[in-house]
Simulated scan of single mutants.
Amino acid sequence: MFSSSKKSNGGGKPVQGATTIIAPGTVIRGDVSFNGIIIVQGRVEGTLRAESDNARLTLSEEGSVIGEIHAPQVALNGQVKGDVHAAERLELAEAARIEGNIYYKVLEMLAGAQINGKMVHQAEAPKRLPAPDAAAAEPA
């Protein structure tokens, strides 16, 4: 259960690192930085921020977060009061309740999930076009 081997995160991309569980009845006040997988079954009052580009945050139905969430992979089924930034994928289950804006690249939302805020799609960064030819830019 608590190993540093590769794990599937539901999105097909392997997650490396330890699994951290914030148990029911536990309250953490302050910002939390994490790698690997974090499962919130208790309450966090502060910002949750992934430090790696393949981390995953899961919020269970009994869990809650008061503060922002920043992670590549986010799966929510509890209550969030704050903005959610999912750089890759955001999954909202039936009991998800979000009071804040969500920023996502890919969104999966089941019937019953509620959002009281803006939904902002984060597109891939546009590819840079080659610089125009200097000779073609001069008037004839």
Rank of each mutant, 00 (worst) to 15 (best):
A140R: 02
V106D: 01
E99K: 14
E99C: 06
A50Q: 10
N54F: 05
I115T: 06
R97N: 10
R89L: 14
R43C: 11
T47Y: 02
Q73V: 02
L129C: 03
P72V: 05
L129M: 15
A93E: 14
S3I: 12
G30T: 10
A86I: 01
L92R: 00
P130D: 13
A135Q: 07
L76D: 09
A137M: 06
V32P: 07
G82T: 13
L90A: 12
E124A: 05
K105Q: 15
V32I: 11
I115D: 04
N9H: 07
V120L: 10
G25C: 02
F2P: 10
I115S: 03
R43M: 14
S52Q: 13
L110V: 13
V15F: 08
L57R: 04
E61L: 04
E61D: 11
S4C: 08
P139Q: 08
Q79G: 04
R89W: 03
G12R: 03
A75C: 00
L48H: 04
E124D: 12
Q114S: 03
A136L: 11
G17P: 05
R89T: 11
L90C: 10
K6S: 14
N35R: 11
K118D: 15
R29Y: 12
V65Y: 00
N35C: 10
N77W: 06
K127P: 05
P130N: 09
D31C: 15
H85P: 07
G30Y: 07
K81V: 14
A111Q: 06
K7V: 08
A93F: 11
P139V: 14
Q79L: 15
S33E: 15
L76T: 12
G78I: 09
M1E: 00
I102Q: 09
E62C: 08
A125K: 15
I39P: 04
Q41G: 02
I37E: 07
Q16D: 06
A50F: 14
E108H: 04
R29I: 08
R128C: 01
N101P: 12
A18E: 01
H85V: 10
I38S: 03
I102W: 08
S8D: 07
V32T: 13
P24A: 09
A55N: 01
E94L: 06
E62Q: 09
M119Y: 03
E51S: 07
N77A: 12
A87M: 02
S3W: 00
T26V: 12
P24T: 02
G42I: 11
G10H: 01
E99L: 09
K7F: 14
K7A: 13
V65T: 10
E51T: 13
D31Y: 11
A93N: 10
A23W: 12
I66D: 13
D53F: 08
I28K: 00
L107P: 08
S33V: 12
A86F: 00
N77R: 14
A55H: 07
V44I: 14
L59K: 00
I98V: 15
L110P: 07
T47E: 02
P72Y: 05
Q114G: 02
G82I: 07
T47C: 09
I98C: 07
A137D: 10
E62N: 04
N54M: 04
N101D: 15
V65W: 00
Q73D: 05
A18W: 01
V44Y: 03
Q114V: 15
I98Q: 06
I38V: 09
L90N: 05
S52T: 15
A113T: 01
V15C: 09
A125C: 01
I39Q: 12
P126G: 06
G11M: 04
K81G: 08
K105V: 03
M109F: 00
S60T: 15
E45V: 13
